[in-house]
Design a protein around this nucleic acid. Sequence first.
DNA 1: GGGACGTTTCGGCAGACGCCGAACCGTGCC
DNA 2: GGCACGGTTCGGCGTCTGCCGAAACGTCCC
Lengths: 249, 249
Amino acid sequence: MGLVSRDRDFTAVGRALATPARSVFLNLLLDGTRRPAGELARAAGVRASTASEHLSVLVDAGLVTCEAHGRHRYYALAGPHVATALEALGTLAAPAPVVGYRLSRHAQHLARARFCYDHLAGHLGIALADAWVGRGWLAGREVLVLTDSGADGLQATGFDVDDAVAARRPTTRACLDWTERRPHLAGALGAAVGRRFLEAGWVVRHRSGRGLDLTEAGTAMLREAWGVTLAEPASDDAPATPARVASRA
Amino acid sequence: MGLVSRDRDFTAVGRALATPARSVFLNLLLDGTRRPAGELARAAGVRASTASEHLSVLVDAGLVTCEAHGRHRYYALAGPHVATALEALGTLAAPAPVVGYRLSRHAQHLARARFCYDHLAGHLGIALADAWVGRGWLAGREVLVLTDSGADGLQATGFDVDDAVAARRPTTRACLDWTERRPHLAGALGAAVGRRFLEAGWVVRHRSGRGLDLTEAGTAMLREAWGVTLAEPASDDAPATPARVASRA
DNA sequence: GGGACGTTTCGGCAGACGCCGAACCGTGCC
DNA sequence: GGCACGGTTCGGCGTCTGCCGAAACGTCCC
């Protein structure tokens, strides 16, 4: 101890991020999914061989892990710390160039609800954070610290708060969305919430895409439990207030 | 709004970090100082011409700003957001390779007290955070949220809390040291504290180096105000408890 | 076993990039 | 004005690396 240099060598991480294909890969994996090499290759517009080389660079840099499954190899982010760091870097990075694509519809969907590695994000994530700050369950405005009443309330609603508190990761963490400017809940508790939403069937992963669909059950649950209503996806733009919260302390 | 891609292009930032020389530059600037091109060149072990090219890359990437002063050009980090992002990336990056140097002495000095862009870090920063958490001035263990009593207490001690709260930046932010594993106070309030420590002469920048020296006045002030004592720099290693806090609630 | 398929490895090519020395520019000083 | 000095620009050199197609490997399925 004390013998290690205090400075960090950004070279390796930098190299890993420094090419368009790898940047695309990371963006795709940033929602916490595992994806086979071929799918990543197609998404980035490069040959399988090229993608393979890129992926091994990411693995060597420790950003991504590889898990063999049958004749597929699934790649995923190496852990929450990678997601956290990339998310912080996103502050500096420019929005990715918009490829032709039917982006608009896609983007709207993502804006509404998605996973940010292991926790809920998009309008849904923000609405939850707002609601819980409103009831005094989370404190610190931009920082989202769990209060005692919050621990009780969330536990009562069926979230595994004890586990989250005991975890090695920070219990709560505020994750600032790049496009919206409001924080949503990350950290061990954020992950627990996300897990529960999936297990309970309140949200389901959109088939063949990133992004989540809020189910009937989920919609009802949000309204009844916390008076949260998300703007309908069918409606046009709803930029100013993406979600409305009834109970505001 | 809504039209921008949700993904980020990490390519540019990645490229900017991807070379040893630029990594050294950023590490040097990470303490918030501005330094002339020549000094940076010497530190990185490259010719002035090479350094100049590197620096223009960093400027183009928006990580660094350049300010002409006489026949010198001073380079500095482009803002707190850059420091924050790099600090987050440090989680992923390996410790920088140790160059020959008389590193040990140097590193010890840095470990004791230094600036982390605009706020106090090192054992000093950690000791302050510990002390203030102990008195209930900061809440949230790993997160460091300012409490009401904390606002009163710090204001009474002469820190400009009102300004910090009014600032556009988050009032408090926990900055996790890479080598130590404990957080210290960053954000607008952290910057206000750092500023005051310099102005009051409690710390002075170490000549020709990074790192801070705690003055007699600073030592006395720490002890009297919060019962904080930093281990003497003359002593050998003091790894386990870098600082001791008297009053623990 | 044979064939389809997902993936990796290999060789090769072209472009990008880091480095340097030399030349150039602007400022400060005598 | 003349010179020293900090800094940038330019041309050139060698290396690295991103890309591809072809070939090899392993798995699944008939």
